[in-house]
Write a protein that binds this DNA or RNA. Structure first.
Length: 777
DNA sequence: GAATAAATTGTTTTT
DNA sequence: CAATTTATTC
């Protein structure tokens, strides 16, 4: 490691090791480089790598930083604690969450799980979803949790009207459901970690002592809860280094509080403040444009980025006829860039909303330009994938009612809505997990239904046994085979079904990858990983494709050529930000524009359309106000030829028809998630994904599982594998208990169980409706 | 209970 | 417009 490679300010930041440090790092100022060297420098000064923590915004950023530190100091980099807030908290909770009344096999509920719970809650309270929109409730709950408010506290601080009272009730029930399912939402990951720390000081002290040097990247995007977390963790050592840029704060809508960075000096009066203002990324023209745009904001720390680079090319501004014309222009420009030696991956298209991507997909497919879309529907959020994951989740955490409901009749096995409703009501009445009820369904159901339900729950328990016997990939393969999750699509002939089969194969692929790379390859770890990765976590995998993403998604990235499209009022800035009552929203929108511009290294293209189809109607928007902030001298203007007077315009499309493909653009189909590559399929390239799956492995597994089926038919349930002394279990009627002793063998095996209410019972394991809840300890 | 047809409803940004 | 929810029929 050689600190001489840093500039003066960067070096100062990398050498100021003790005490609180605030680094105000402008866009492209070598922030990651500085952080990397600082960590390496700490290690060079004898600090053990495991005492160093760095929190980043995305898993991708964490991974990249780890690689860069590794280049400097080698294998020791592996011991540095690098993670996002969410995955770091998940790690802490996996160790000790049982201390605050959850099982360590807790589930992480995502957005769509929240939807399901809230729908049920509204239903139960007899509230109309139109008057209490799910999305609004979700955001209220999320904001409350960001501020560490419980339902009551939230209500006290609200307007305290009738609506708020109802929201409070919903909130309370929502929390109860999560708790009952042993599940946490994203905000809980932070909040429950804090709860753990506050209720159990020794746990906090452990981390305070261990993590002597803490770094937080993108500090401007932290919310109140995260701020408290960081404050607590660094309280003892006071070695806290935060890095951020108030001009790049673009997550206010998610609870991010710029005050955290603006007030850092108040929180730590002895903080050393270092400013990184030299930009290494963009040409002078691009940087000047960015500086001009952001200077219209009032609420910001004064600073000015500068560069040693030449002016470079002017910013190209294109006025398009409509959104198709805009896409054609972009396609044409990219084709030019390619012919001048640029790679496809040198170019990114940035837009305000995902919906804008579709027309680009259409045009690029027609032109044979490979592209990748990041964000949007996550790979793991696709229906066929979520179904598989739901099986995995119920195996890890048998109390996960949301997952169970999802799969109890998927694929179709004749357990209808009415039946599920009844089972669910029963579980609620008795306060036990749905799976417990399924193991011993009420007599009010027909024998036919009961048989289906019992054999379903036996299948789940069989999987639970297999979990500890088979390696992860074989387990998942076996589940897919046994349940018919894949074969249900293999029979279908539509392209959609085929895509689903591909995605399932892709999932298996990603499992193998996970097993090769990770150190913890347990099912639980896999499920957790899947819950916390985003679509932005694999950017840069593909060197042969154009990158397409939202402006938010582009934060932290850079590209030689950047297209900012849809530069129109109501699009960008978004119509929702154009309000007089909240000028902060417009400021955030402007920062987003600043972020976009500063992604570009050499060439920046901006475009707007005179007319655009939005929300299924044609709208005519003015050019974005942000364009007017850029000095004319930095801009080179191009305008569309009028379609009426110049029929050759449409022919310009045909020039790009080098490889004509007439595949329908099938909506989110082309969204690229982890490892998936449907673009290459469209373009005739071979995807190696399915090849690795063939033959041997598959057969091996299905054999293993056919044994299991036979056993099922004989009704000879191998309980001996499932329970052992010391296990925590939940009984249908007696509630939570601990197995203190196991006697007998096979079908006659009995367990002595001490239940939470003090009762001690001896139960036959082959028939007792028991669920193991400490499945992974 | 399942498969189809009809109606309805929603679109910022994400760990 | 397209995805999801609801109604209808078998």
């Amino acid at each position: 490691m050689n600190l001489q490679e840093l500039n003066k300010e960067q070096r100062k930041a990398a050498e100021t090791l003790e005490g609180p440090v605030l680094v105000l790092a402008g866009a492209g100022s070598g922030k990651t480089k500085m952080l990397t060297y600082r960590v390496a420098n700490l290690i060079a000064h004898g600090v053990p790598p495991h005492s160093i923590m760095a929190i980043t915004f995305t898993n991708k950023a964490a991974q990249e930083m780890r690689e860069r530190i590794e280049l400097l100091i080698g294998d020791k980099a592996k011991e540095v604690w690098l993670s996002t807030f969410h995955s770091g908290c998940a790690k802490i909770l996996r160790r000790d969450i049982d201390k605050i009344g959850y099982s360590r096999s807790f589930a992480i509920y995502d957005d769509s799980d929240q939807d399901i719970i809230l729908k049920e809650v509204l239903n139960k309270l007899n509230l109309d979803p139109k008057q209490y929109p799910i999305n609004q409730i979700k955001s209220i709950i999320s904001h409350a949790k960001e501020k560490l408010l419980n339902p009551q506290e939230w209500f006290e601080k609200s307007r305290r009207g009738f609506f708020e009272q109802q929201i409070q009730d919903i909130f309370v029930l929502y929390e109860e459901r999560l708790k009952k399912s042993n599940a946490l939402d994203f905000n809980d990951l932070i909040g429950k970690t804090l709860e753990l720390f506050l209720m159990h000081p020794p746990v906090l002290e452990y981390y305070q002592t261990r993590l002597k040097y803490i770094h937080v990247d993108e500090y401007q995007d932290t919310d109140y809860a995260q701020y408290i977390l960081v404050s607590l963790l660094s309280q003892k050592s006071r070695n806290l280094c935060v890095v951020g840029d108030d001009d790049q704060s673009i997550y206010g809508w998610r609870g991010a509080d710029v005050k955290n960075i603006l007030d850092f000096e108040k929180d730590f009066p002895d903080a050393k403040v270092i400013k990184l203002e030299q930009n290494y990324r963009s040409s002078a023209n691009i940087l000047n444009a960015a500086n001009q745009v952001i200077s219209s904001n009032i609420n910001r720390k004064d600073k000015a980025l500068w560069t040693k680079r030449d002016d470079g090319e002017k910013i190209k501004l294109y006025e398009a006829l409509d959104e198709r014309d805009e896409a054609l222009y972009v396609g044409k420009m990219i084709t030019h860039l390619i012919s001048s030696g640029q790679k496809l991956s040198d170019t990114a298209i940035l837009y305000r909303t995902h919906a804008q991507s579709r027309i680009f997909e259409e045009v690029f497919i027609q032109s044979g330009l490979r592209y990748r879309i990041y964000g949007g529907l996550r790979f793991y959020d696709r229906k066929e994938i979520k179904d598989i994951l739901a099986y995995l989740r119920i195996i890890v955490n048998p109390t996960d009612d949301v997952s169970l409901k999802r799969i109890i009749n998927t694929p179709k096995r004749g357990i209808g809505d009415a039946t599920v409703e009844l089972l669910s009501a029963q579980g609620e009445k008795e306060g036990v997990p749905l799976l417990s009820v399924c193991m011993d369904p009420p007599d009010s159901l027909s024998l036919r239904s009961r048989n289906k339900i019992v054999s379903f729950s036996q299948m789940i328990l069989d999987f639970q046994i297999k979990k500890d016997i088979l390696p992860l990939d074989q387990l998942i393969k076996g589940i897919i085979d046994t349940t018919g999750l894949k074969s249900q699509y293999e029979q279908g002939k539509t392209e959609e079904d085929q895509g689903k089969v591909d995605n399932i194969n892709e999932l298996l692929n990603s499992v193998s990858e996970f097993m090769e790379n990770g150190d913890d390859i347990s099912l639980q770890s896999y499920v957790e990983n899947v819950a916390l990765v985003s679509n932005f976590d694999q950017i840069g995998d593909d060197s042969g494709a154009i990158t397409m993403m939202t402006l938010h998604g582009a934060k932290g990235l850079e590209f030689p050529n950047v297209f900012m499209v849809g530069m129109e009022e109501n699009v960008f800035p978004s119509y929702r930000s154009i309000t007089d009552e909240d000028p902060d929203k417009m400021e955030e929108e402007r920062r987003l524009c600043y972020v976009g511009i500063t992604r570009a290294e050499n060439r920046l293209f901006m475009s707007y359309a005179r007319s655009r189809r939005m929300y299924n109607q044609i709208s005519y928007n003015n050019r974005s106000r942000f364009l007017d902030d850029i000095p004319i001298r930095l801009i080179e203007k191009e305008s569309c030829r009028d379609r009426n007077s110049d029929p050759s315009l449409d022919q310009s499309v045909n020039i790009m028809h080098s490889t004509p493909y007439n595949h329908p653009v099938n909506n989110k189909k082309n969204m690229i998630g982890k490892g998936s590559d449907s673009t290459s399929r469209y373009l005739g390239a071979t995807s190696n994904s399915s090849i690795q799956l063939g033959g041997r492995t598959i057969q091996g597994v299905s054999q293993g599982f056919s044994n299991l089926n036979v056993r099922n038919q004989k009704n000879d349930f191998p309980t001996e594998n499932l329970f052992s002394e010391g296990d925590w279990v939940v009984h249908r009627k007696f509630g939570k208990g601990k197995i203190v002793q196991i006697n007998g063998e096979g079908r006659n095996m009995q367990a002595v169980i001490a239940f939470a209410d003090g009762q001690i019972k001896t139960l036959a394991l082959s028939i007792a409706p028991l669920i193991k809840i400490n499945s992974n300890n």
